[in-house]
Computed example of a mutant assay.
Amino acid sequence: MPAGYFVTGTDTGVGKTITSCALLHAFAMTGKSAVGMKPIAAGCEQGKWVDVERLAEASNISAARALINPYALLPPIAPHIAARQAGIVVDLAVIQQAFDALQERAEIIIVEGVGGFLVPLDERHDTSDLARALALPVVLVVGLRLGCLNHALLTARAIHASGLSLAGWVANQIDPHMESQAENIRALQKRLDCPLLGVLPYRERIAAKEFAGLLDITQLSQLRKR
């Protein structure tokens, strides 16, 4: 049975894409066919949606761009605003159909969310509704910076309130000058009821394949067996 994970973050810009790509490489290293999906991308740079490009490059199978990224929005703003400006209505059923099609092609699907876990997608739905529609366990990316403890714990509470399982979390060192990083990580390990999959160090140039070796995805496999 194909499996997948929904990658969300404590905020925008905390490393969801690099974590998603590292997960794809990590599963590929175990011999799994793995494909990344970015249901909604907001922000086009020189005619490209960079997150989508990176996910496609990290996947070890190819798939139609319409399946990997059903909704590509131009401005780098909240998706419900970008969609309204473009006269588009984000339809969760369209995303579900694309996900189902990807399931026929890959054993592992890594779905990267947009923004944080409760970012609005339209007037009625937010990212949590998308994750719930796909019924995927969630991997939480915590951007290590001042305020991350509160953001991480609030996000974890929102994930549980949505009825979804929090499969694991990744600590991403986005602020090289953050004080007491180790203490912050230990505080979250005590308070989040899921395993720490790995700590991603700060890098000027990020190599997702290199980071794959820093993630312990065996803990995710154990979750699937329970």
Rank of each mutant, 00 (worst) to 15 (best):
G115P: 02
A131M: 01
W169C: 11
L164P: 14
D122N: 15
R145C: 12
E123P: 07
A167Y: 09
S128W: 04
A158F: 05
T155E: 08
T155R: 03
C148H: 06
R145A: 05
L121W: 10
G115M: 03
H151F: 05
L153M: 04
T127W: 03
A135K: 08
F117A: 01
L146R: 11
V139C: 13
P137F: 04
V170T: 04
H151W: 06
E123H: 14
A131L: 05
D129K: 06
G147A: 08
D129L: 06
L121Q: 04
R145P: 05
R132C: 01
A133D: 09
L144P: 02
G115Q: 02
V142K: 01
G168W: 06
H125I: 09
L130W: 06
L164H: 11
L154P: 01
F117Y: 13
L118H: 06
V139Q: 10
A133Q: 14
G115I: 03
P137A: 01
R132Y: 08
L130E: 02
D126R: 14
T127M: 15
G168T: 09
L153I: 00
A161N: 12
S128D: 04
R124E: 14
A152M: 10
A161Y: 02
L130T: 13
L134G: 11
V142H: 10
L153V: 01
N172H: 14
L166V: 08
H160D: 12
S162A: 15
V142I: 14
A131K: 05
N150D: 07
G143V: 05
I159N: 03
V139T: 12
A135I: 00
V139F: 14
L136N: 09
A133T: 15
A135C: 13
S162K: 12
V119D: 00
L134F: 05
R132H: 15
V139E: 04
H160G: 13
G143D: 04
A133F: 03
T155I: 03
G116M: 06
G116D: 04
G163T: 08
V141C: 13
W169D: 00
A131H: 03
A156Y: 01
V141H: 11
H125Y: 10
T127H: 10
T127A: 12
G168F: 13
H160P: 00
D122Q: 08
V170Y: 04
G163C: 11
S162I: 09
V141P: 12
V138S: 08
A135R: 15
D122L: 14
A167V: 08
N150T: 15
H160I: 08
V139S: 09
G163Q: 02
T127I: 15
L153F: 05
A161M: 13
F117S: 00
L144G: 09
R124Q: 13
L166A: 11
A156W: 00
S128E: 11
C148F: 13
V119T: 14
F117I: 00
A156Q: 13
N150I: 09
G168V: 10
L136W: 13
L154E: 00
H160L: 12
R132P: 09
G115Y: 00
A135M: 12
G168Q: 04
V119N: 00
G168K: 07
R157Q: 15
A152G: 07
H151E: 02
N172T: 02
H160K: 15
V119Q: 01
D129S: 03
L154G: 03
A161T: 13
G116H: 04
W169K: 02
G116L: 03
V170E: 02
H125W: 07
A158W: 10
L146Q: 05
V170G: 05
G116K: 07
P120V: 02
E123R: 11
R124M: 11
